[in-house]
Design a protein around this nucleic acid. Structure first.
Lengths: 229, 229
DNA sequence: AATAATATGTTGGAAATCCAACAGGGATCA
DNA sequence: TGATCCCTGTTGGATTTCCAACATATTATT
């Protein structure tokens, strides 16, 4: 079961589990590895899904189609990454997304019930697995909460302030760099890059922030009446 | 420990655990119940938080403040509801929100580590507790995914289509009622109610949907060129 | 160093949203 | 029944964003 090879280190679901212990864990979980050709469907929206998928090799797209027929790519994943874990753990009657292989891929599928059911031999790694899953879901939750908080704002300026405030809190400083370039930041905020650039310029003129490439400095002085337009 | 009285049935974290087993579970978890006066802070943004909070009585607001000083209420919770579970389980170094009592309240606090650590006596309810927590986080995750998918759209029409498509998928029919009135729907989509109303009217004229109060019917016919404006 | 490719800032007109105000319909209540 | 309140749809002007195009700056490539 060395199919994951050294990528295993990057699979958060298995973090803290020694490589030599993994094969017994995987057989305990009845993990199966399936091969998919490029463009083959792995999960289809509307179907039930009890399985978590781990990409051993290849890559996939998670996507959605609305009733008009527009397809939206939710995420592009590659080796070592996980998908379907939320739907499996939430035991939704049907999944709201589809997953398709975008290259020939090997996918490990693990049944959700096997994850939560403690094995008869009280396999010690099992509880670590559940703990990891808890952490993965919770982390994603925190990130999504954060994103919703930001993109719920009505104006570009409000989105920027919400986003930058959160960065400052996380990094515990008013002077920091962000992991996005302008286009990526605009995509995250769900606004137009050029409009966002313009707004950033305005905010600098107003003296709320200073920015240069990825670097930001928050400068708000409470009570200053000069922060409009 | 009948402090939760009959509200216990509504606490998803304890679902599947019989009422008579609960007190032993709670002592195993070292659960403590603290009293807070109205306006007292329960969790403060920036602090670490290993605890999950359960409202035994009273009510709280979860809120956020940006660096300009604007306060946003994330959610208003009352008896039986849970808070802080994502931050505790994700083991974030500090929490991004604050929680304040909006009435005199009794709050049960459970340390995250007690939840994930199997107790020495292999308390049988413990695994159920973890399973419940997994379900709670995963469910919230699915809901947040859904919300981000919808409000990421740039136009009101796109938001409506994304939202309605998802409802149709969940309910497995093109004819359904939604749990929102117009104002609530607008709030969910992060748009103006009046603009949304106007857009719904247009969509009806275009023959994409029919709607009357909470009832919606999706009518798209693939290939019809008549779905603009 | 020269060139190409990428990233960022600016701008002006088109399009969409917001906002405030108002009107009609339906439910509730005295 | 009449009065009131809440919900919904409509409308017009102010505001904001989008979009496309271009200019400049920075980085990568040869």
């Amino acid at each position: 079961m060395n199919i994951l090879s050294d990528k295993i280190k990057n699979v958060k679901l298995f973090s803290g589990i020694a490589e030599q212990d993994l094969s017994s864990l995987l057989s305990c979980l009845s993990a199966v590895v399936k091969s998919y050709k490029k463009d083959e469907i792995i999960f289809l929206s509307g179907q039930p899904a009890q399985s978590v998928g781990i990409i051993c090799s290849g890559s996939v797209h998670v996507f959605k189609e609305d009733f008009i027929g527009n397809r939206t790519i939710i995420s592009a994943l590659s080796a070592g990454e996980l998908f379907g874990e939320s739907f499996a753990c939430a035991q939704t009657s049907s999944i709201p997304v589809s997953v398709v292989a975008t290259a020939d891929s090997k996918i490990m599928l693990i049944d959700y019930r096997k994850i939560i059911t403690t094995c008869p031999t009280t396999c010690t790694f099992h509880s670590r697995l559940v703990e990891n899953m808890l952490g993965i879901l919770a982390y994603k939750n925190v990130e999504l909460d954060q994103k919703v908080d930001v993109i719920s704002r009505r104006t570009t300026r409000e989105k920027l302030i919400a986003f930058l405030s959160e960065q400052a809190r996380k990094l515990e400083t008013n002077c920091f760099t962000i992991p996005f370039n302008r286009q990526e930041l605009a995509d995250y905020l769900c606004v137009e890059r050029s409009a966002m650039s313009a707004e950033l310029s305005k905010m600098q003129k107003n003296g709320i922030i200073e920015t240069n490439k990825n670097e930001f400095k928050l400068l708000y002085i409470p009570g200053d009446p000069n922060y409009d337009n």
